[in-house]
Design a protein around this nucleic acid. Structure first.
Length: 620
DNA sequence: CGGACAAGCTGA
DNA sequence: CAGCTTGTCCGG
């Protein structure tokens, strides 16, 4: 479409400036080729800024003198991604520019035309081999999962997902695969390439030129599989055939800064708009996934075999002499042959209280979260006496229920604090094990060889991310996870066990196992893990969320920041949205669904100043 | 967002 | 009232 009758073409441009969520029209200089999504530079209000072309051959607003595009830098997100960004901006109450940056190449892509026949969209691809799954795995679930339009595939941690991805990649149309980390994506992508599948590994970090090249490769339509981490939900994939999200339950899929978009939800929406199947894969599918799709499971025997043996130790029964962290089972484990990873989350969580008499943890009688001790005035905090009058109380950090300082199990009224750090635990463990113990936290500098070979390690949750293989994983004090006041505590604890299970999978002779020390051995998470059946936990959790008005039973948002009072004044009290707060300057909004919540948020004009709108907060 | 410009404050 | 700060508006 060239210029008509010598009239100059006019395009619409969204500036890449957060704070200007508005489009402007520009003239296209003679002989310049532009496409929707192209990255351009424009003169705007006395300065030169970047932007994206969002409309071609538009009718310019009357009575404005148009300026020409200063420059067309290169290719950008395809039209459907521009639209998807509009949707996501609504869904997470953010700015389109934020999302379009993620959808744009990390560097300049001048053209997608690499060859003389410059096929941009549909490079010919060998006919897909239908039928038998690769490498004779004969797994019917691969076919079942890939033929579901809204599939949620529950695969145990030990299961190999590669045959599924390979088969997906061989089917017609481009397969977009999301992994929790860039490292996972690289491993997967290289393996696909070795197997002859043309693969683009998209990532925004790493060497700029290489990353840009991968983006262009994906955008050219020549890759059969496009694989990447969170941001790859926005990767180019012309002729999209299906989307696969691996470990969809993983919280890294949610962006921490606002807009707090979630790659799984973007992937689902993207597939839906393209009318292609989306498959969410996880050992422990999120409630969000289960609410969205159709659950596909492998047979009971396969799932059971894909979880390691799990031993639960009740810390209430332990000999006080050794301290609560070192059960006989743990001592035996660390003195034994195999490679052992010990996990102790010590960082800044609420302190746990245990009954001084019977060691039972102080938990909320309503919702089971850990409770803390609240003194009426500025009284002492370490020891809770009975006392009279307005004495201290146990308060639930999750649902706010209060009760007198009495143990639910033995009715004693004295509690002790439990608090132990990794460093001290490491020293004690070294003595007990009679050999060196390596400490691994997120910050600790530990070289790769040590991570790969040290026979005995201890660390916070980070150790599960940094170590690839072990014969056993021991959680020294799992109640830190189980009883956290975050409403997703149980799901997060289950995810952590699944991650640990992957470390010990296929331990030679299947001797790998998990050891979990706890004061709540009958917790649903542990019941589900021992049964190798995360569905049990999902059932209980799904029933609880409506009771506490928590996602996914409701749609929720937190509004905070300096401009929050202004924003909330404009927000008012829309129908069917419950407004609570402010608590510490933050409001909490809840609605029956996102349609209602996000429409209400979008109806308010943003005041100037710092404003944080966190839709689907992980903690609330 | 950041530049332009207008209205408001301060000091001689 | 010049000179500067603070606030509001708008960009093609």
């Amino acid at each position: 479409m060239g210029a008509v009758d010598g009239e100059q073409r006019v395009v619409r441009v969204l500036p890449d400036v957060v704070g200007i969520d508005k489009e402007f029209d520009y003239l296209v200089p003679e002989g310049v080729d532009v496409h929707i999504g192209d990255v351009v530079r424009i003169q705007l209000g006395g300065r030169r800024v970047g932007g994206w072309v969002t409309g071609l051959d538009v009718e310019p607003a009357a009575g404005v003198a148009l300026r020409p595009l200063a420059r067309v830098s290169g290719r950008g997100p395809a039209p459907e991604l521009i639209e998807l960004a509009g949707w996501a901006a609504w869904r997470w109450a953010g700015r389109r520019a934020h999302l379009l940056r993620t959808a744009s190449p990390p560097g300049v892509v001048r053209s997608l035309r690499l060859g003389p026949d410059d096929a941009v969209v549909t490079a010919p691809r060998p006919e897909a081999e239908h039928g038998a799954p690769p490498d004779g795995s004969g797994a019917g679930w691969i076919d079942e999962a890939l033929s579901s339009a809204h599939g949620v595939l529950r695969l145990p941690p030990g299961a190999d997902r590669y045959p599924l991805v390979l088969e997906a990649g061989r089917r017609p149309g481009i397969t977009l695969v999301l992994c929790p980390s860039v490292a996972d994506a690289q491993v997967l992508g290289r393996r696909l390439r070795r197997d002859g599948v043309r693969t683009a590994i998209v990532a925004h970090d790493g060497p700029g030129a290489a990353a840009t090249g991968e983006w262009a490769h994906a955008a050219s339509g020549r890759a059969q599989v496009v694989v990447g981490a969170r941001a790859a939900a926005w990767a180019p994939a012309p002729d999209l055939g299906r989307v696969v999200v691996l470990d969809e339950h993983d919280e890294v899929y949610q962006q921490e800064q606002t807009p707090t978009w979630h790659a799984r939800d973007v992937a689902v929406e993207r597939a839906g708009r393209a009318s292609v199947p989306c498959l969410l894969v996880s050992p422990c599918p999120s409630l969000e996934a289960l609410a969205w799709g159709d659950l596909v499971t492998v047979d009971r025997g396969t799932e059971r075999a894909g979880w390691p043996r799990t031993e639960v130790v009740d810390q209430r029964d332990l000999d006080p002499g050794l301290g609560p962290l070192f059960s006989p089972a743990l001592v035996e484990l660390v003195r034994g042959e195999g490679r052992v990873v010990c996990v102790l989350n010590r960082t800044g969580r609420a302190r746990l209280l245990a009954c001084a008499a019977c060691s039972t943890l102080a938990r909320c009688e309503v919702c089971d979260a850990a409770v803390s001790l609240e003194e009426p005035a500025g009284g002492p905090e370490d020891e809770a006496g009975s006392g009279s009058g307005p004495g201290p109380e146990l308060v639930c950090g999750r649902c706010g229920t209060r009760r007198p300082v009495v143990c639910l199990h033995c009715h004693a009224s004295r509690f002790k604090n439990l608090r132990l750090g990794v460093s001290r635990a490491r020293e004690e463990l070294e003595v007990l094990a009679g050999r060196a113990v390596v400490e691994v936290t997120a910050a600790a500098e530990v070289d790769d060889a040590t991570l790969a070979e040290a026979p005995l390690l201890i660390g916070t949750e980070a150790v599960l991310h940094r170590v690839a293989r072990a014969d056993s994983v021991a959680f020294l004090d799992f109640d830190q996870e189980l009883l956290s006041t975050r409403y997703r505590a149980s799901e997060q604890a289950m995810a952590m066990l699944a991650r640990a299970a992957r470390l010990v999978r296929r331990g030679a002779d299947g001797r790998g196992r998990l050891l979990v020390q706890t004061r709540t051995p009958d917790h649903q998470v542990l019941v589900a893990t021992r049964a190798a059946d995360p569905g049990r936990l999902a059932e209980t959790e799904r029933a609880l969320r409506p009771v506490f008005n928590m996602p996914p039973a409701v749609a929720m948002a937190i509004v905070s920041g300096q401009a929050a009072p202004d924003f909330m004044a404009g927000f008012g009290h829309p129908d069917r949205v419950r407004v609570e707060g402010p608590v510490d300057g933050a409001w909490r909004l809840r609605a029956p669904d996102h349609e209602i919540l996000c429409d209400a948020l979008a109806a308010v004009s943003r005041p100037a100043g710092r404003l944080r709108i966190e839709v689907d907060p992980l903690r609330a």
